[in-house]
Structure formats: structure tokens, C-alpha cells
Design a protein around this nucleic acid. Structure first.
Lengths: 277, 277
DNA sequence: CGCTTAAGGTTCATTATTTGAACCATAGCT
DNA sequence: AGCTATGGTTCAAATAATGAACCTTAAGCG
């Protein structure tokens, strides 16, 4: 792996810790030599990506990402665009609605609107969404190129509940259903008693960048309601996609043709070149 | 320079551009070979720090910094950054210093450092600071967009003391003076016998998020002292802004001059698009 | 106290990664 | 067609990354 990759992985590891960490721990967690970890940290610190506490000597995420995030959001504000739609959906569905974004090979929650009810599903901002076990993950994969699906399903799939589907073949079936329907359903895939539906936010070329998901307690949710949430999630996701990418030509709105739009034909060589990871 | 440093500089350069950039431009701006720039970009893209537009092939800041920024802000809130500065200011001013943060449409006190004296001003953590009647409120409004000023002054303004200014026109005059001076003065606006000065903590775009204020008994405070407190409040507020958001200026390549640059944000940043946290 | 342990931090010969000139591919333009 | 600009790729040469061993400090403990 490249040095840059290693350093960024270190940053990622540091960000996933619950607390600030010392040099030795960081080196161990990243499987790096202490000297190497230190050099990375010093380099990252120079650029503001990490900070070392003066007293404890421990390291934490620095302020540079805050600056970059502001620039990104100013120039490319998914959150800004999406939040009104998420809010409105949470109101009409009267269930918790959350928004996820694909970044660095993972799908993570970037916004949550709680249901206006006492009994509701809680989702944390920042939480990671496994591809095979969440509605968001399924919706994301279902509209991704086959190569990404293969990559996601070749690692062992964790079984979070009795209902989690961990057989890659069965997951593929779910993906096919999702692609045909336009939205995904996860029946207690990540947590018992929770049913979710999700639809992908996509670039004008059809490539998903994140998802809109509705999460509800299974106990009060009928099959009809699930399908209604799904339809609403699609509507919200499409509205966000359109607003986010401006008035570019809206691609085929029929979810039917949704599946693997990306280059099903033509230069395979070219495709594989850009799809490293 | 290390590879990591070069890659992070590339990211920094990319972030300072007004628009998305192509490979050749990026390589030129960073004084890197095209091949090198490309390898960096690919590596950064893998980790979500940059994104390549599918159509234009241009590069932009990715979404990974957004995730890191959220974590940083959750784990290292304004309070932690600001307290050392507030403490130090309380010591040099030998008067009570308090810190406020704007949240939910109101300015509220989030930290207080008491003056090291028997006779001192008491401020409670959690207390709300009316915009028209406190130094913090005035400092906050003075650097806010006009729309926010208008909104704050259209409700009836409560008269807390004989000295409280409640005529919106006169309040606007105070705001103009504050904007020109860089810090606000509230002469017994909320409580008789107390004079306060405050300066805003601002985002890199100039939008205020809170204030640093010095509160002193009127009886022992000369006009000169007030202006000194004001200057110190500005210095503290700017130092906090910079530490919290990171420097907007190019990364100092000289590790030697690591010192704080605290110049006032004279910027007329018109970017009013900002996000909630 | 002095010994032990563990953490942060550093050195420098060895090793693997980075580098960039030259290359190819494609698209727009005359 | 030819020209030019851009994105993207290759591979021998140059350079930067590596890590075992080392130093330093501070806490823990008989």
C-alpha cells in the first residue's frame, strides 16, 4: 500500500476511536511500526489533520478537516440540499428518516431526522451502515456496478441478528428485488425489531452516492406501510439527486431499468482501469 | 518533503481553488509531475478525500473531510478549544470573562472564568444573553448578516435597566460602532453598575458563532481599560476562531514560525452559505 | 530510594516506494 | 487529415520510507 494510503488509514482509524489515543496504541491498531506511526502523525499534524494534546501527548483529529468540510459543503452541499427533503419525509412518514453518504469505501450516516413520536428508531450520525445488513446498504449496492457488488460480497458478512442475510447468493437476490422495485427493504437486518426501507441518491449517470432511508419499529409497520415508505424514499432520493446535481438531464426515472446502468457494454479495459480499490 | 506532506499540500491547494480542477492544472499548481499528481489523486480518492467528476474528469474535495469534521466537532467542541484562551484572558484582565455560543436562535453562556478578585461580576453558565442589551449580543449581531439583525430587532426590546437601549435605531448605531471598532461595549445594558466588552468568534467566512466577553464593575473601570479589554477580547476571539477552524491561510511550510498569527478578520467574505453543526 | 516497566520519541543502515521523462489515447479545433 | 491540449500510463533510476535498536522520561512498587 502507498504511504499516502497508510497515512490516511491511520487518520481513519484515529477517527473511529472513541477517545484520543497514544502513539503506541495507534501504531498497534494500524499495524505500523512506532517510528512510522510517529512520522505519519507528525506529518499529519503539520497539515492540521491531527493534533497532539500538549498535556497527555495523545493524538486527536485536527482542524484541517473542518476547513475542508466547509469548502466541500459550500461547493457541493449534499446536506444542505438533502435536509429539507429528509425533514419533510420524516414528517409525512412519522418515522425516523436518515441520510447516508458513501465515502472511503463505506456508507455512513450523515443526517438523521427523528420521528415525531415517543416510540421511534434511533440512528446515530456517523454510524457505519453494512452493505448486506441495512436497507441503505442494499439500496446502494443494488444500483452499483457489478464489480462493486462483487467486491462487497466477497468479504465475510457479519450476522447482526437472527434475520441478517449472510449468504451472498441470497443477498444478490435481495439486490435484484431492490433494483426492480427501486427501493430496498431490510427486515431486522442490523437490529431486531426494526424494519427499514431505502432508496439511492444518484449522480446523473446513475451512480449512487448515498441513500435516504426510513426506519420504523416492526411492531407497528404493515406491509403496505413499508411499500409506502419505500415509494416516499424514492421520491425524496430522486428529488435530492436532481436538486444536488442541478438541472442536468434527469436520467430514466423508471426504477425498472435502474440496475446496473454503468457501462454494461463496451470497453471493459477502460472500466477496470478506473475501478481500482 | 515527505510524500504525505506533498499529498496533503495537494489537497490544500485543491481546496483553495475556486472551482474544480483538471489533472494538468493541479500538477502545475502543486509543482508536481503529472504522473505523481495523478497517483496522489487516486490515492486520496480511494479514501474519499477527493472526488473525480464522472463527466468532466475534474477533481474536487471529497466527503471524507466532512465525516472527520463531524467527529472532531463532536469530540472537541468549542468549549475545549476556547477555555484556555478564556482563562488566560481572565488572568490578564483580572476581570470576569465569559464565553457564549449561538444555538437555537439564542446566545447563551457556555463558560465563565471569574476574576481573581473579591469584587467581581458574576455570570451564570447557561444564562441567555439578549442581543440588544449585552456586549456579547451586540458583538454577535454586529458581524451578522443584515437579515439576522433585522430579525433580532423587530421584536420588542426589553428594558432591563435605565441604561438599556431599546430604540432599534439606536441599537443599529451601536452595531455600526461595534463593527467599526471590532468589539462591542455594553454600558449597564443588562445590569446596573456593570460594563462589558465583547468580540465575536467567527467562522473563516466571517459568520459569528459566539462571543468572548469581559465584564467589569463600572466603578473601577476607566474608558482606557474598556478599550484594552476590547482589544484583548478581539485577540482571544480571533485566536479561538483560528484554533477551532484551522488557519485559512496557506499552511506555514516553516515549522519554526509556528506562532499564532492573530490579525483581525478584515475579510468581506460574502459567502453567507453556512451550515448548521 | 533504586529498580522495573512502559510509554513517547529518535537514529541510521537497509529496503521498498516514489519519481518523472517519455509514452499512449482521446477529444476538440483549423 | 493534422495539430494541440488534456487525461492517463510505464518502468529504470532516484529517493524516501522503514524498523530494530536505542534513548528518555515518568509512573509503579518493593
Amino acid at each position: 500500500m502507498s504511504t499516502i494510503g497508510k497515512a490516511l488509514s491511520l487518520l481513519d482509524t484515529l477517527s473511529r476511536l472513541d477517545k484520543e489515543a497514544g502513539l503506541t496504541d495507534i501504531a498497534r491498531l494500524c499495524a505500523l511500526d512506532k517510528a512510522t506511526a510517529r512520522r505519519f502523525l507528525v506529518e499529519l499534524e503539520k497539515h492540521g489533520f491531527v493534533e497532539q494534546d500538549q498535556d497527555t501527548r495523545r493524538y486527536r483529529i485536527g482542524s484541517a478537516p473542518v476547513r475542508l468540510a466547509r469548502i466541500r459543503e459550500a461547493r457541493f452541499p449534499l446536506l444542505r440540499v438533502a435536509i429539507p427533503f429528509i425533514k419533510s419525509l420524516a414528517e409525512t412518514a412519522t418515522e425516523t428518516v436518515h441520510l447516508s453518504e458513501f465515502s472511503g469505501g463505506q456508507l455512513s450516516t450523515i443526517h438523521v431526522e427523528d420521528a415525531p413520536r415517543a416510540h421511534r428508531i434511533i440512528v446515530d450520525v456517523g454510524s457505519l451502515l453494512p452493505f448486506h445488513a441495512t436497507a441503505s446498504g442494499l439500496a446502494f449496492l443494488a444500483f452499483s456496478p457489478r464489480s462493486e457488488i462483487d467486491a462487497a460480497l466477497e468479504k465475510p458478512l457479519e450476522k447482526f441478528t437472527d434475520h441478517t442475510v449472510v449468504d451472498p447468493r441470497l443477498v444478490r437476490n435481495l439486490l435484484d428485488e431492490t433494483a426492480a422495485r427501486g427501493f430496498s427493504i431490510s427486515d431486522q437486518g442490523l437490529e431486531a425489531g426494526v424494519i427499514s426501507t431505502a432508496a439511492p441518491i444518484r449522480t446523473p449517470t446513475g451512480h449512487p452516492i448515498g441513500c435516504v432511508a426510513v426506519a420504523a419499529p416492526l411492531s407497528r409497520t404493515t406491509k403496505t406501510a413499508v411499500h409506502e415508505f419505500g415509494a416516499q424514499a424514492i421520491a425524496a432520493a430522486n428529488a435530492i439527486s436532481e436538486k444536488y446535481y442541478g438541472s442536468e438531464r434527469p436520467m430514466g426515472t423508471s426504477p425498472k431499468s435502474g440496475g446496473q446502468i454503468d457501462e454494461p457494454h463496451g470497453s471493459l479495459a477502460k472500466d477496470t482501469r478506473h475501478r481500482n480499490r
